[in-house]
Design a protein around this nucleic acid. Structure first.
Lengths: 336, 336
DNA sequence: CATATGCGGGACATTTTGAGTCCCGGTGAT
DNA sequence: ATCACCGGGACTCAAAATGTCCCGCATATG
């Protein structure tokens, strides 16, 4: 079934549509085309094409008083229910989450990144597909760091509409290993898609003084300007403590984070359980107000262990597209 | 799986196409688009659309030297093989039989009419769909009798292109019960589709003298002319002995049929194992030369027990479209 | 080293399909 | 008798699929 979905991705949509139509007719008994179209929020013409098809298949019958299921249709509806349920589990979950957080789109890939490397790759592929979908020519794309983002970058392919894109890191260095840093990922993405890239080389742990002088450097200032004008932001989501440790922040900061209830991390900011920003890493780049102004913010993350963190960032509420795996989706639902 | 096929009939085609492409690439290793298109008998553009899709799905990769499967593609190909085999079993069978008997189309519905009434209905539906497909406006459609044809008639629906059709019986009365006679079926089909019909009332067991005088009647002559000009013929296929008994032919004739090796019956003619006509029922209507001249001859039959009879009529070799069930198809294959 | 071949990918005209919208005759309830 | 709603036909326009050709590039071949 999953395999089939792989070779026929829109199978799900069509199946759902037809199932819904049959289901509604079954529920109503006899119903007219226009009434049904209104109920299902389909245009008359589309509904009609489907009805013609279903009639051709002998699943429903038309009379002057309206349409009703045939015997075969009734039987099919029974038989197909479990199939649809399975097939649409994720689809429904996607829609639930999308509505819950007022997102533009939610993509759920089957599996658990924590369990399977393959799911992580799949997540990367889905993330890349999402980016491809929302990118248009000449966009500035700001990307964060992390292993998930690296996976996304790895699955990007050259495409016409991203040829002119400019990839920039969302923030300066954040203490990650080189290949997982935003800079590396931005450059990988650019190479993979055939786009341009600009880097932001800012050391970690800047003092106030150094920071001020750095921000007066015209080169730095210019690239920061570009970053802040990004039309698309792609970032991962991490567990606050895991991230803090990975970035080797000092004990005092960790204690602070704990005290503040930091749970999740994304693009250098730390969020508590309610989605409030409780801490930020001291480096330059995208600010919160930039995130809010960005047209499309894409979050990619996966793994059951990340569920809570994802929930926190979602409550922050400035994401547009969420790409997660099944395990995270289920977990996320538990944290509502 | 069968259920799914019911709601998404062209799923099979697409799946087969994509599977074939992946399969070929796997077999070749690295192959160019044009070379592949030639091999698969696809136009370059279509192949390309598919390749783009498969690439999007991460199933294959392109290099300057050509395309090859990705790791995921290789795995998918393995996983999907049983699915495709099951799903395409009938499709392949259709194609095998189509090629073997040089037919225009073979339709196989799953199941066995002998076992299940539902399969018989399904066969009727498929027969009706085939007739609908090949009928065009104003056609003369000659239909034979039998329970299968009655089922076909039952599943016809009003349609624009058959509104002007003229349904006629292929032959005069052949001793069947009224509702299974060609006359009844022609009239049912006309009523179901919204077409016209003309009947041919000729009693059974005509003497030579009566036959001659009947054929001088201008009314009879005219309708016979119409029948012989039919552009489409739809008929069932029966076991010779079963039909003979059902038509209550006398012992002497049955003995003759046995002696001649009659195996199958269709539109009033009896065929032996090799497809040679060994006997004809004495009534008026379509002659063999008319069948040969007919643009589209559609045979509808099903049931494991009919396999041999169908094989015999197929060897006769003037059919264009064959609609059978799975059991008959498998049996038919055994009799090659 | 030069040339030819076959590659993927871009581009474009044309055909085919899909979709939105209206209208019509029929039918059943009021 | 009237009216609302039914299915189905028809038309237009937009979008997608398709056939076709070309280009720059890598590689193999002479």
């Amino acid at each position: 079934m999953d395999i089939q979905k792989r070779l026929l991705p829109d199978l799900t949509d069509v199946l759902k549509k037809r199932y819904t139509i049959l289901h509604h007719i079954a529920a109503t008994g006899v119903v007219g085309r226009r009434a049904l179209a209104t109920h299902l929020e389909l245009t008359e013409r589309v509904l009609r094409a489907e009805v013609d098809f279903l009639k051709e298949q002998g699943l429903l019958e038309t009379e002057s008083s309206g349409m009703k299921l045939s015997e075969a249709g009734r039987k099919l509806l029974e038989d197909i229910e479990p199939i649809v349920k399975e097939l649409l589990g994720l689809t429904d979950l996607e829609e639930t989450l999308r509505a819950r957080f007022s997102l533009r789109q939610v993509v759920i890939v089957p599996g658990d990144c924590d369990q399977s490397e393959l799911t992580k790759k799949e997540l990367g592929r889905a993330g890349a597909a999402a980016l491809r979908k929302y990118a248009s020519k000449g966009d500035v794309v700001a990307v964060a760091g992390g292993s998930t983002l690296a996976e996304v970058a790895h699955h990007l392919t050259p495409s016409a509409q991203m040829k002119g894109s400019l990839f920039v890191p969302a923030r300066g260095g954040l203490g990650e290993s080189v290949e997982l840093q935003a800079n590396s990922i931005a450059s990988t993405m650019a190479k993979k898609t055939g786009g341009e890239y600009r880097l932001l080389h800012v050391p970690d742990h800047l003092g106030e003084e150094a920071y001020v002088s750095l921000m007066q450097d015209p080169n730095i200032l210019e690239i920061v300007e570009v970053i802040r004008s990004a039309r698309i932001v792609v970032h991962g989501i991490g567990d606050a403590m895991v991230m803090a440790r990975r970035r080797k922040v000092d004990q005092r900061t960790i204690a602070e984070l704990t005290a503040e209830g930091a749970l999740a991390e994304a693009f250098g900011y730390y969020f508590d359980r309610s989605g409030k920003v409780v801490h930020k890493m001291p480096t330059v780049g995208l600010r919160l107000e930039d995130i809010q102004a960005t047209e499309t913010v894409i979050a990619v993350a996966g793994g059951k262990s990340k569920g809570e963190a994802i929930a926190a960032v979602m409550k922050f509420g400035h994401e547009d597209v969420l790409v997660i795996d099944e395990a995270a989706a289920v977990e996320l639902l538990h944290h509502l």
